[in-house]
């Protein structure tokens, strides 16, 4: 098995190296000031389509794996703000802390005007964020790292405190009348997911235990949840931590002949229908679109006007609770893939 991993890592490293070389190539080949590009940018700005001022270049580096709906929405928000603020938006991501740090370094090397970074693995990013701050590049953190953000020298943090969101979920579960619940963790060892379950456990009046499932394999998610509900018939509540797992849980409960009430974190378009017809009780939305949008906008504000949102405190983008009554009002946005 070690060989497998080794090979994979080498493959990815090679890919990173190639990307790095390409980035270098673009840098040395293009002029960073003047020329046709600057002229176009000026005329664009003068035309007044987007916000005034020279075009900024902002890089976002997250810990997302490939093909994650959540990060797709974050990017959509960021791109919307970038279009409005006349910002060139660069996105890169790697779930491994060390590699994410290399990507941040690449952004510093490109002399971007601002960096947006997630601190899912704060220790791996401490040094590189400090380097960005030393290079006088403003840094905004999003999603994870509320505690470390200010300490590392970031301007502001946008995100949802997972423990607070978890507590909200626990309270909501009490309201729907659950007495014994399971919290389905689809990525074992993920700090944010553990915090959600821990938070829910604190406010949930009944008994709650965790269940680990392999989130990249839906048949396994389904059969594990079914197994848990079969093993313990007294379970009357399930808290899923993402929308896909929640929808699979609905099927699993049906298979197990369980009437457990199902609730979830996060949002997608299929979830809206399930919320409307009551298959899922409520969803705790952390509004990923806001995290992307606000981060880009904050860097623009800072560069243009020295503004800092939140007064040194993390700015919350959630928890926003969506249930049967409110689902219809955000349906069109979920359909467009921005909620």
């Amino acid at each position: 098995m070690r060989r497998f991993h080794h090979q994979k890592r080498r493959g990815t490293l090679a890919a990173v190296a190639v990307t790095g070389l390409l980035a270098l190539g673009t840098l040395s080949a293009c002029s960073s000031s003047g020329g046709k590009e600057a002229e176009e940018q000026q005329s664009q700005a003068a035309a007044g389509g987007a916000a005034a001022g020279p075009r900024l270049k902002i890089a976002m580096i997250t810990h997302s794996g490939a093909g994650d709906t959540f990060w797709d929405i974050v990017q959509k928000g960021a791109r919307a703000a970038a279009a409005k603020d006349n910002v060139e938006f660069l996105y890169s991501a790697d779930p491994e802390g060390g590699k994410q740090a290399q990507l941040v370094q690449a952004a510093i090397d490109q002399k971007v005007d601002g960096i947006i970074v997630t601190l899912a693995k704060p220790d791996a990013l401490r040094d590189v964020v400090a380097r960005a701050v030393r290079a006088k590049i403003p840094v905004v953190t999003i999603n994870s790292g509320a505690e470390e953000s200010a300490e590392f020298g970031a301007l502001v943090h946008f995100g949802q405190d997972e423990t607070i969101a978890g507590r909200a979920a626990g309270e909501q579960l009490n309201k729907v009348g659950a007495k014994k619940a399971i919290c389905v963790i689809h990525e074992q060892g993920n700090v944010g997911l553990e915090a959600r379950c821990a938070g829910a456990q604190k406010t949930f009046a009944g008994q709650m235990e965790n269940l680990n499932v392999q989130g990249t394999n839906m048949p396994q998610v389904k059969s594990s949840v079914t197994a848990k509900l079969q093993a313990d018939k007294s379970v009357d509540g399930v808290l899923a931590l993402n929308a896909d797992v929640a929808l699979t849980t609905v099927d699993a409960a049906k298979d197990a002949g369980s009437g457990a009430k199902i609730a979830t974190f996060d949002m997608n378009k299929q979830l809206i229908a399930a919320l409307k017809d009551g298959r899922i009780q409520f969803a705790i939305d952390q509004q990923p679109y806001l995290q992307g949008y606000e981060a880009v906008d904050e860097l623009w504000l800072y560069k243009r006007n020295g503004n800092i949102l939140g007064g040194g405190q993390p700015v919350s983008t959630g928890p926003a609770i969506v249930d049967k009554n409110t689902a219809a009002s955000i349906e069109q946005f979920a359909d467009a893939g921005t909620r």
């Binding site: 490939a66 990249t216 896909d244």
Partner: peptide, 8 residues
């Protein structure tokens, strides 16, 4: 989900 299947 397009990201599924890795590791199986």
């Amino acid at each position: 989900q397009s990201g599924e299947g890795v590791g199986n």
